[in-house]
Design a protein around this nucleic acid. Structure first.
Length: 575
RNA sequence: GCGCUUGUAGCUCAACCGGAUAGAGCAUCGGCCUUCUAAGCCGAGGGUUGCAGGUUCGAUUCCUGCCAAGCGUGCCA
């Protein structure tokens, strides 16, 4: 049940009957203030203007054609020509009842399912995952889950970087440590340090650097010795990723890994096809594509270089190959790229060139879901005191540790294993939520305390609401769902209305690729529940009231669990 | 130079794509645990939405200019 859509179809119809051109939006929204009812229609004023009519008169005509008697208690004309809609409480109660029974919480599958390819996480395997990878990984994962729930076919693509020049350096350093197997495996346990050690050798030793460059060539020429070594390294690096994904409760597996190197054999064909399409221009020895839409005021075009003057290919070439693969082999109709905002120009070029060249048809929706760079607490690019980036593992360890201290303080009677379990769910949840709840395309500041906060608008707040409900059910005895839902206090009706808006939140996430909309919704829902919890006693209420309230609690719990589940965050029985 | 993004309360962020009196959290201050978990609830203070114009019934939102920040911009990814 999507109330907004339902009202939209009714009001749109009435608008047409009132003589307004078809397709004029009714602009239904939740009312901005309680005294304006539950929903408001904002579209009439604009429509009246087009027809050169008095908006209030048009509103009155629309009202005559509008039959909401089954849904709304009253509809009023207000202000310059808004319609304020007051939903019927009995209807609301019925909808809530059926949502509770429906198992899917009343969420309908989309009528136009798509094949959505989602490119997310995509770390560079030369290094260990750091805090900068958090956004792409968890936001992409949440959106993937939401689209799946709504019935799209979702294909995850972890476009890991496994083929850069850094690998020459890393493999050469592996060679050096070859004799000492123990040292090698130990060092590979911390890829970040390994990378830094290799880098230092590269910078300080000319012979090493030369060997590294030669080894890149050997690797790319398919030298079996280096290929073997490379595979070994990649495998270890992917193991690091798998561990992180598991801890983060992110659904990516090895099956979703489609590395850069997988496209190597397609690159020359990409360039040939661009040439065939008449898009290729050789300029200063490099093969480029110049598209007019990338021309600035200074009349110069930013080209996309697809082949270097030395014959080498670039990541633009790889991305074009991937784009074509996703359309031709995977059947993509919508492509979402959860990638750093700094690559904005690059993404626009890939999309534009891909369509121009006919690698994907015009009607495939390609969207760069950009996000800002993570900055340190001082506003400069994120660094630790020692100068390296913060490893994701360390952030997660810290989160769990802080959560463990807190749960031990609050609930010392719980056994240690339980407290560790709670600490894990709460700690990881807090880290994920602090990132998921923001949809800033601008850069943002990393803050330990904010990211590891367990109060206010955080995952633990939502998890806490859930455990409160579970606690009620443990104490309430038999729950009889046959007793009908009734609203005695305003808090109950408010909560029910919010519960019925779950699908509106979900659908907006699917449309915009913005999980923060779901976070907002869940936080508001929890807030309304907390209020309900304070003012509406449940267990000691008389039987009819008690079971009605248990019903609201059950639906709240289901919604929280499902909603958090879509964010990849678990719930708890106690905390 | 050109291009992209951003600028909202002391701090971190919302505001459902032009709607009615710009909302939360943190921090600060004041109340609430013999009653379902106080990781909670109730209340208070805090704003010229960077600045200046424009578009219209109506602008945080759209347009223009300026200021500030970040990023990108022909052979790294």
């Amino acid at each position: 049940m999507n109330i907004r859509k339902l009202l939209d179809s009714h009001v749109s119809q009435a608008l047409q009957l009132a003589g307004v051109e078809a397709g004029t939006p009714a602009l239904i929204k939740p009312s901005s203030r309680p005294e304006f009812g539950d929903y408001q229609a904002n579209g009439i004023i604009g429509a009246a203007k087009k027809l050169n009519m008095n908006p209030r008169e048009l509103a009155s005509t629309v009202l005559n054609h509008l039959d909401l008697s089954a849904i709304a208690e009253k509809v009023e004309i207000a202000g310059p020509g808004f319609l304020n809609i007051y939903l019927d409480s009995r209807w609301l109660a019925q909808q809530a009842e059926s949502a509770l029974e429906s198992e899917s919480l009343g969420i309908h599958k989309t009528t136009t399912p798509q094949t959505v390819v989602i490119d997310y996480s995509s770390p560079n395997l030369a290094k260990e995952m750091h805090v900068g990878h958090l956004r792409s990984t968890i936001i992409g994962d949440a959106v993937a889950r939401v689209l799946e729930l709504l019935g799209d076919t979702v294909i995850r693509q972890n476009h890991v970087g496994d083929w850069g020049t850094q690998f020459g350096m890393l493999l050469t350093y592996m060679n050096e440590l070859e004799g000492d197997t123990q040292s090698l495996s130990m060092q590979l346990a911390d890829l970040e340090k390994f990378y830094q050690a290799a880098k230092q050798r590269f910078d300080s030793d000319a012979d090493f650097a030369r060997a590294a460059r030669e080894n890149v060539v050997k690797l790319q020429a398919g030298d079996p010795e280096f290929l073997k070594r490379w595979k070994q390294f990649i495998d270890i690096s992917l193991q690091h990723c798998d561990e992180i994904y598991q801890r983060l409760n992110v659904l990516l597996t090895r099956d979703d890994v489609m590395p850069e190197s997988a496209y190597n054999s397609a690159l020359s064909q990409v360039v040939m096809d661009l040439d065939q399409a008449g898009l290729l221009i050789e300029d200063q020895g490099a093969k480029c594509v110049f598209l007019d839409q990338f021309k600035g005021k200074d009349n110069t075009i930013v080209p996309m270089i697809v082949q270097k003057s030395d014959g080498g290919y670039l990541y633009a070439t790889t991305d074009l190959a991937a784009l074509r693969y996703r359309y031709q082999q995977l059947g993509m109709t919508r492509g979402l790229y959860f990638i750093d905002a700094r690559q904005s120009l690059h993404m626009q070029q890939v999309f534009a060139v891909g369509k121009q060249a006919g690698f994907v048809p015009e009607n495939v929706q390609l969207e760069h879901m950009a996000f800002g760079t993570m900055m340190g607490e001082d506003g400069t690019p994120f660094k630790t005191r020692s100068g390296g980036t913060v490893k994701l593992v360390d952030l997660l360890d810290e989160a769990q540790q802080r959560a463990f201290v807190l749960v031990t303080e609050k609930n010392p009677q719980l056994d240690e294993a339980t407290r560790h379990h709670i600490a894990r769910v709460v700690g990881i949840g807090a880290v994920k939520y602090s990132d998921l709840s923001k949809n800033r395309t601008s850069d943002y500041r990393f803050n330990w305390d904010a990211m590891l906060s367990f109060e206010g608008n955080t995952a633990p707040y939502l998890q806490y609401a859930y455990t409160r409900i579970q606690s009620i059910f443990r104490k309430a005895g038999q729950f009889n769902p046959d007793i009908p839902l009734l609203f005695q206090e305003p808090a109950e009706r408010q909560l029910a209305l919010k519960l019925l808006q779950f699908s509106e939140a979900i659908e907006s996430v699917a449309k915009d690729g913005a999980p923060n909309l779901l976070c907002n919704y869940l936080f508001e829902l929890s807030g309304l529940f907390m209020h309900f919890y304070e003012v509406c006693p449940i267990i000691k209420a008389e039987e009819k009231i008690k079971h009605s309230r248990l019903k609201l609690s059950a639906l709240t719990a289901n919604t929280l669990q499902t909603g958090l589940g879509l964010l990849g965050i678990d719930v708890l029985e106690t905390m």
